[in-house]
């Protein structure tokens, strides 16, 4: 279980990007949404350990991890996928899986992981992770890496970014599949209605504050009712 206690993050010119966030995430599929600049990516980076909060505590399974760096947190079971997927020129899909799992995988294991993101191992395992892969393929490979690690907390920052409609559909299926198979917690930052729709819980961040948090059905209803116009406008643009 992940618990955030009074998390704040300021930058030099006294600008508060996160203001006193208190949050408990306990398993399942959690979506974080909210208007641009609301602080979603910043919150994700604070959890992953890329940036240190100005104040507050981060507790993972009862242990204070506020002072651990990103690699130490990765070892404790937190994984993070950046908003834009990166290419690893010179590394093959197989190499990446090996790095993620920390060991050589059997072809069967590789096949299982890749097919759960809708890729055929035979076609992809020896491909170099470079610009010759499509955006959707890169995204799926990145997700496959996180699956391969089997971490208890996986954070995806806007996994739908730059994905075409077709790939988006299969991406949704991947997340639905993940939701059924992965035991840990999955946190997805997203503006997409269909992703929010698959979530168990939804968290809304606006201007650095946590303004709503709850089960999907109650929050989702409110979002569509237009109670919070900022979020809704944003959602409608995307839909």
């Amino acid at each position: 279980m992940l618990e955030l206690k009074n998390i704040s993050y300021d930058v030099e010119d006294n600008k508060e990007i996160l203001k006193d966030i208190n949050l408990k995430i306990d398993g399942g599929f959690v979506a974080i949404t909210g208007p641009n600049g609301g602080g979603k990516s910043t919150l994700a980076k604070v959890i992953a350990g890329i940036i240190k909060p100005t104040s507050g505590q981060i507790i993972l399974d009862g242990e204070d991890i506020t002072d651990l760096n990103i690699t130490e947190r990765a070892k404790k079971g937190i994984s993070f996928a950046f908003q834009t997927p990166v290419k690893f020129k010179g590394l093959t899909v197989k190499d990446l899986l090996k790095l993620s799992m920390g060991k050589n995988a059997s072809f069967n294991e590789e096949c299982n992981i890749l097919s759960s993101v809708g890729l055929c191992a035979r076609d992809y395992i020896n491909r170099e992770v470079n610009a010759s892969l499509s955006g959707g393929e890169l995204k799926r490979i990145e997700i496959a890496m996180i699956l391969a690690r089997g971490t208890k907390l996986s954070i995806f920052d806007e996994p739908e970014a730059g994905i075409d409609l077709w790939s988006f559909n299969s991406l949704i299926k991947v997340f639905e599949h993940m939701r059924e198979t992965v035991k840990g917690t999955i946190v997805i930052i997203s503006h997409q209605e269909r992703i929010l729709n698959t979530a168990d819980r939804i968290i809304v961040l606006k201007e650095g504050r946590l303004i709503k948090e709850g089960a999907r059905d109650e929050i989702y209803g409110e979002l569509l009712d237009g109670v919070d116009s900022g979020v809704c406008n944003r959602l409608e643009e995307n839909i």
Partner: peptide, 15 residues
């Protein structure tokens, strides 16, 4: 610059 290093550091590979 390309972000590859960040992704690399996030994997459980020792620095």
């Amino acid at each position: 610059e390309r972000g590859t290093l960040s992704s690399m550091l996030i994997s459980p590979v020792k620095r």
